[in-house]
């Protein structure tokens, strides 16, 4: 069975290592914060100027001055820091953030990502995504394997305007964990009960399958 959004977030949470500074994008990536493994301490960075995102606030705790990059109200953990946007992107551009998790419309087998614009239909802007993908040490994309029409989002070449080139290292979808290698997509894990064949059919780009592919442990 393919994973739901929380399943994708749970699998990505397994990539977190003790001491990581992590930037989580809007959507599925935000959910990763709910599944940080026990014994692993990570600090979440929000590009609007917060290091140390806490839980959502109670009604009484809500502060209009304290939001995340998705403009949702949040809290700050004890030991958090606030700063301006230039300092925030110095953390990102300077390579101080260990892991970036973000969503995407499309990823190519060379690690290109498209996530910010659908010409003629939707223009919301790139926000901080272009800065994040250009500078993060490690980028994981969280997304559905196919779009609403059932078309693959793992492509030979992206069809939509790019956010960044040759930057994505790993993709976690509802069907699989896929790495970007020099030779194309490489299948690492299958979602529980999903066959290699199903994943191949849902992947337009070249998919390398070597040996037995284990199921994800969720």
């Amino acid at each position: 069975m393919s994973l739901d959004k929380n399943g994708i977030a749970k699998r990505i949470a397994q990539e977190l290592k003790n001491g990581y500074y992590v930037n989580l994008g809007i959507g599925i990536p935000t959910l990763v914060a709910n599944y940080i493994p026990e014994g692993v301490e990570v600090i979440l960075q929000s590009e609007n100027g917060l290091l140390g995102i806490g839980t959502f606030p109670t009604k009484e705790e809500v502060s209009a001055d304290l939001i995340n990059a998705g403009k949702q109200t949040v809290t700050a953990i004890p030991g958090a820091a606030f700063f301006d946007s230039a300092t925030s992107f110095a953390m990102i551009r300077g390579g101080h953030v260990d892991l970036t998790v973000l969503g995407a419309f499309e990823v190519s087998e060379e690690g290109d990502i498209a996530s910010w614009k659908i010409p003629g239909k939707m223009v919301k802007g790139m926000g901080g995504a272009m800065d994040l993908v250009a500078s993060a040490k490690n980028i994981i994309v969280a997304m559905q394997h196919t779009n609403r029409k059932g078309e693959s989002k793992l492509l030979k070449k992206c069809s939509l305007p790019l956010t960044g080139v040759s930057c994505v290292k790993r993709i976690v979808t509802n069907l699989a964990v896929v790495d970007i290698t020099e030779n194309g997509f490489k299948l690492i894990e299958r979602a529980p009960g999903v066959s290699v064949e199903e994943i191949k059919n849902a992947t337009e780009g070249k998919l390398i399958v070597e040996g037995d592919i284990p199921e994800m442990k969720i």
Partner: peptide, 24 residues
Amino acid sequence: PQGTLAERIRAGGAGIPAFYVPAG
């Protein structure tokens, strides 16, 4: 890009006419 926008403003205010970034 947001970080480029922030840095362009910071640079403008700090008297730096131009700089290089990887974003975009």
